[in-house]
């Protein structure tokens, strides 16, 4: 059971990252902040666990990373959604919608 949760969480985290970068390039810290704001800190994630996901997504070619300057003129690594990443995001959104609908139908429906 626990194993299943972790897996689900991983997949979800990837999708959330892709969604976050949908608007434009961001560094890891900015992604964490944005996730916190949007979910109103409902999802408790250790912020560092973003990074293995980011590296993995970069390796898979869903993200592209470049070093640049942050708002405070510090060197930071910026992640951008690639074309492949964008396509993947669309698919994740669809899958999620279908999954959520199916789960809702079961949980909310009259048994």
């Amino acid at each position: 059971m626990a194993h299943h949760r972790t897996k689900l969480l991983h997949g979800t985290l990837d999708a959330l990252i892709l969604k976050t970068l949908h608007q434009g390039p961001r560094h890891g810290y900015a992604i964490a902040r944005w996730l916190g704001e949007v979910t109103k800190d409902a999802i408790q994630v250790e912020e560092g666990s973003l990074y293995p996901a980011l590296y993995r997504l970069e390796r898979k070619g869903l993200l592209q990373a470049e070093w640049g300057r942050s708002e405070l003129d510090r060197r930071a690594k910026f992640y951008t959604l690639t074309k492949k990443g964008r396509a993947n995001l669309e698919k994740e959104v669809e899958d999620w919608a279908r999954f959520a609908e199916a789960v809702s139908r079961v949980l909310m429906g009259e048994g």
Binding site: E46, E47, G48, S49, Y51, P52, Y55, E58, R59
Partner: peptide, 23 residues
């Protein structure tokens, strides 16, 4: 504490990063 287990995360990232560079 917010960041999490730094050492574990570092090792995960390095592993992925090396694989990325190799590919």
């Amino acid at each position: 504490s917010i960041f999490g287990n730094k050492e574990q995360l570092r090792s995960d990232c390095e592993h992925e990063g090396r694989r990325r560079d190799w590919e």
